[in-house]
Each structure stands twice: as structure tokens, then as C-alpha cells.
Amino acid sequence: MKYIDINCDLGEGKSLVDCEHDARIMPYISSCNIACGGHAGDESIIKQSLLNAKLNGLKIGAHPGYEDKANFGRVSLDISVEEVVTSIQKQLDFFLRISSKLNISIHHIKFHGALYNDLEKQPQLASKLAELIKYNYLSLKVYGLANGIFEKRCIALGIDFIAEGFMDRTYVSSGHLTPRSEENAVLTEQALSIAQAISLASNQGIKTSDGKVITPQVKTICLHGDNPEAITIAKALHFQLTSAGFLI
């Protein structure tokens, strides 16, 4: 049997009604990353998201990012590395206090948006956030970009790193994600994104936006929950992967 984890960024809505939408995705995935109040979410949304995820038997992750709800954490902030580390620790501690009160265990950490990308552009930032995890949250695994700088920093510190691929984002030949500022950064056609997911799960090559082929070695694949068609895509992805012999 072949195994693949499907993760989805959730808890990023503005109300408990949005949590209901998220809950409809949960039967078709195996892990989730819940916003920690920085780029999205608040205490009530975190609580409901945690309860829904537990009910669906998901591996649950914390999903911190830049504290910038106006831009959904998708813009790099001009702040020091120390300020980023302080903000992330605040978000993680807030999230873990809520999960602890609910007696819900947390499986992993996955960084969000621009911060996720900046970890690959700023080695010092990658090192400092890896150190934060090692000395404060070592019991948690980390989901992050396959074959990147942050993966190397985490592994060097003994952090359990789970390499991630993206079904609905394009890559450049370096293995990094195509910047969202470029037109071809997102795969909008469902058939193309599902085909890429199956290639990633099978460790087969995928075409990059600059005309090359790369083969990221991944253990988890991200499906973006903020896509208006996320539920439809999740159902189709689940069907196609299980039909191809994968256990999600």
C-alpha cells in the first residue's frame, strides 16, 4: 500500500460559518494547519477548528504567519528577525494554550504564506525559527518546502521535518514556488492540480513554470482551503488518489 498525507490550511475564515465550510473538507484530507490569529483567525475560530479537526480524526498543526490580516500574511513585512521570532512564539503559545484547554494534541507546525517563502530566501530567519522550535516545541513535527534551506536547518537541529509539495501551485526549476506576483503561480484548472498531486505523491517529475522538470520528494501535499472550489477539489483528489492505490 502506498501512503500520502493530504494537508489543508484551515481556520482562515472570519466567522464560525466559515468553520462549517472547512469541516466539509475534513473527511477528504488527513491533516490540517489551523491559523493562529496572525494572518487570520481568532480564539473562537481556533476552538471550533480544533474541535472539528479532532472529530474528523485529523493530524492537527499550528499555522502561524506574519501578523498582517489586511494582506492575509502574503506580503513580507519589513521587520527584524527577532521581531518575527517573537511574533511566532506568541502565536504558537496562544494556539497551544487553546488546544491544551480542549485536551487536543497538536502534531505539527507549518508556516504560512510570505513567511513560508521567506524561510527559503533568508537563511538567518530559517536558522532562528528552527532554533525556536528546537528549544520550545521539539515535540512537534514541521511541515515545510521539500529540499529547501529550512528543511536543512531543521534536520541539522534534530527536528522531525515532513517535506511538503503543493498541488495547486507551480514551481520554478530551483524547487521553490513560483512567486504569487507572477501570473502562472497558481494552477486554477482542477485537472492540472490533481495531476500534479498524483505526480508528487508518486515521486514523479513535474513541469516547472520556467520549462524544466523537477522531482520533489514529498511526504505531504497541500490543498489550499481558501480556494472557493476546495471542497470539490478535495473530493476529486481523494477519489483519484485512492483509485491510484494510495491510502490517505
Rank of each mutant, 00 (worst) to 15 (best):
P123V: 11
F94Q: 09
N117I: 02
I98D: 07
V85E: 13
K134P: 08
Y135K: 02
F94D: 07
I88H: 00
E83C: 01
L119N: 06
L140A: 12
L140K: 13
L92V: 02
K121S: 06
F95I: 05
L92D: 03
S87R: 08
V85W: 12
A130L: 09
F94E: 04
I88T: 02
L138A: 13
T86K: 12
G113Q: 06
L132P: 04
I104T: 12
K141R: 14
K134T: 11
L138G: 03
Q91I: 10
F111T: 09
T86M: 08
S87G: 12
K101A: 15
Q124K: 14
S127K: 05
I109G: 05
L125N: 03
Q124C: 11
D118R: 04
H108E: 15
Q91P: 11
L138Q: 12
I98H: 11
K90N: 15
L92E: 03
F111E: 11
Q91Y: 08
Q124I: 15
Q124W: 09
K134C: 11
Y137M: 05
K90I: 12
Y116D: 08
K128T: 08
Q124Y: 10
K121T: 02
K128G: 03
L119Y: 05
L92F: 01
H107N: 15
E131S: 04
L138E: 13
L115A: 08
S87E: 10
L125R: 04
A126V: 01
L115D: 05
E83N: 08
Q124S: 14
P123A: 10
D118K: 08
E82C: 02
N103G: 02
L125Y: 00
S99A: 15
I98V: 15
Y135A: 00
I88D: 02
A114I: 07
E82D: 11
K128V: 07
S99F: 14
A130S: 15
Y135W: 01
G113A: 07
S139K: 09
V85S: 13
F95C: 02
D93W: 06
F95K: 04
K134V: 06
A114R: 08
V85N: 13
L138T: 06
L102H: 01
E83L: 03
A114P: 00
